[in-house]
Every structure is written in structure tokens, then in C-alpha cells.
Amino acid sequence: MPNEASSPAPSRCPLCGAANRCAMELERETGLPQGPCWCTQAAFGADLLACVPPEAKDRACICQNCARGAAAA
């Protein structure tokens, strides 16, 4: 069984720790349909994705602020 303390929180950005507002995670938590996630309209470049820690890859979504910051850079 994985250690809960070392597992990334699916509702938190793996880069800054803020709430990522992932619609899929919100739907899972609440059981209420959320509609399409904001991330379907966002661009996640290879440089930004490379910053995600290995233990969070495919487990936690990057937040809008980090995605916007990377796009602006």
C-alpha cells in the first residue's frame, strides 16, 4: 500500500501546491457533473511538464496560474 503522506493530492497543483480546480477531480469528490475542465483549453508545454515531480505525473493536475505563467514566459 502506498504511503499517503508521500502521495500527491490530486486536487493540488504539483508545482505550487494550490488548488488545481480540476473538474474531473471535483466531480469525483462531489459526485456532481462539472462540465469540461479548464485544462482542455490550456497549453502545457514540455518544459512545464518536465517540472512535475515524478511521483505526481499522471496523478495531479497543474493549476491555471502555473499554466498561465509558463505560457507567458
Rank of each mutant, 00 (worst) to 15 (best):
G45Q: 08
P53H: 06
P10N: 06
A9Y: 10
C22R: 01
L32R: 15
E55G: 04
I62K: 05
R68A: 10
W38R: 00
A56D: 06
N65V: 08
R12G: 03
R12D: 10
A50F: 10
C51A: 14
L26A: 07
A42S: 14
E27I: 00
G35T: 10
D58S: 15
P8N: 08
C63Q: 01
A43V: 12
Q41T: 07
P33M: 08
P33E: 14
L26S: 03
R12F: 08
A43N: 10
L32H: 13
G69V: 02
K57C: 13
R59L: 15
G17P: 03
L48P: 03
I62C: 02
Q41S: 13
A56I: 06
L15K: 02
I62F: 02
C51V: 05
S7E: 15
R68T: 09
G35P: 07
C13V: 02
G45D: 15
Q34R: 13
A67R: 05
Q34S: 03
T40N: 10
A42K: 03
A19H: 08
V52M: 03
S11I: 01
C16A: 02
N65L: 12
G35I: 08
R21Q: 02
F44E: 05
L26M: 11
A23D: 01
G69S: 10
L49K: 14
A23Y: 07
A70L: 04
A70Y: 06
L48H: 08
G69L: 04
L32Q: 15
C51F: 05
C39W: 11
R68L: 13
E29Q: 15
Q41C: 09
A9G: 06
L49A: 01
Q34M: 13
A71L: 12
A43Q: 12
T30S: 14
A67L: 05
Q41N: 10
C37E: 06
A19Y: 03
P54D: 15
Q64A: 15
P36M: 11
A42I: 01
C22G: 01
L15F: 04
D58W: 09
G45S: 14
D47H: 13
S11D: 13
L26H: 04
A23W: 07
G69I: 00
A72L: 14
Q41L: 13
C61F: 03
E25Q: 14
L49F: 08
R68G: 02
P54L: 11
T30C: 03
P36D: 14
S11H: 06
M24R: 15
N65F: 07
P36G: 04
P33K: 13
A56P: 06
P33V: 08
D58P: 02
P54C: 06
Q64R: 14
G45Y: 09
A71C: 08
A56K: 01
P54V: 11
Q41D: 12
A70M: 03
G35V: 07
R59A: 15
L32E: 15
A60C: 04
R68K: 12
R59N: 07
P33R: 14
T40H: 12
R68S: 10
G35H: 07
E55M: 07
A50I: 04
P14Y: 06
A46W: 09
Q64P: 07
A43D: 09
A71G: 11
P8W: 07
C39M: 07
